[in-house]
Design a protein around this nucleic acid. Structure first.
Length: 166
DNA sequence: GTCATTTGACCTTC
DNA sequence: GAAGGTCAAATGAC
């Protein structure tokens, strides 16, 4: 199984959790310097993929959080690169389930880790994370919030090259 | 034993 | 003050 696939295979709504004592002693007595943490990525580089299914992008993602969205019945899940600490990879992604069969995935930052494995639907281009070859099974929307917005339409652009002008 | 997931708390931004 | 985003302890799977 490819890295990152496991997280998706365990996708459950709602997730089953039965931990009676997990909520105890959740205090964080010794908060370290948070001057560089929790920063919202207001103008950071990001791009979004909307797809009817959760596609494996070939990256090794690790889930680090989940939040309910006020405007949605479905939670938003937060993933970071597994190699965040060992290779300093800053890539993260947020997955918001829009509908029962529609997912919006927003990617933040570039993968700087070397352990990149090609996914079945996405092939990385050179060193530019905005240059992908998309081979969609469905109509998929790809947008780059840091640059131009491109709507990917299978009918019109199947196999065509997506490139952000950011 | 190691690593991923869950989940409430905490921090930052709006 | 609310919402979004991240941290870290507890727990489970392999």
């Amino acid at each position: 199984m490819l890295p990152g696939v496991e997280a998706f295979s365990r996708w459950e709504w709602p997730p089953k959790v039965d931990r009676s004592s997990a909520s105890e002693s959740k205090k964080r007595p010794g908060l370290k310097d948070q001057s560089n943490s929790y920063k919202r990525r207001k103008n950071s580089e990001s791009w979004t993929v909307v797809s009817p299914e959760l596609t494996d992008d070939g990256q090794a993602w690790r889930k680090y959080g989940q939040k309910m969205n006020l405007n949605s019945r479905h939670p938003r899940c937060y993933f970071r690169c597994t190699h965040k600490y060992d290779q300093g990879c800053k890539a993260t992604k947020h997955v918001q389930q829009l509908q029962d069969t529609m997912y919006k995935t927003t990617y933040y930052g570039n993968h700087t880790c070397r352990d990149i494995i090609k996914g079945p639907q996405l092939i990385m281009g050179a060193s530019d994370p905005h240059k992908y070859w998309w081979i969609p099974n469905h109509q998929t929307t790809v947008s780059s919030e840091a640059g131009s917005i491109t709507n990917y339409n299978k009918k019109d652009h199947q196999g065509s090259h997506f490139s952000s002008s950011s």
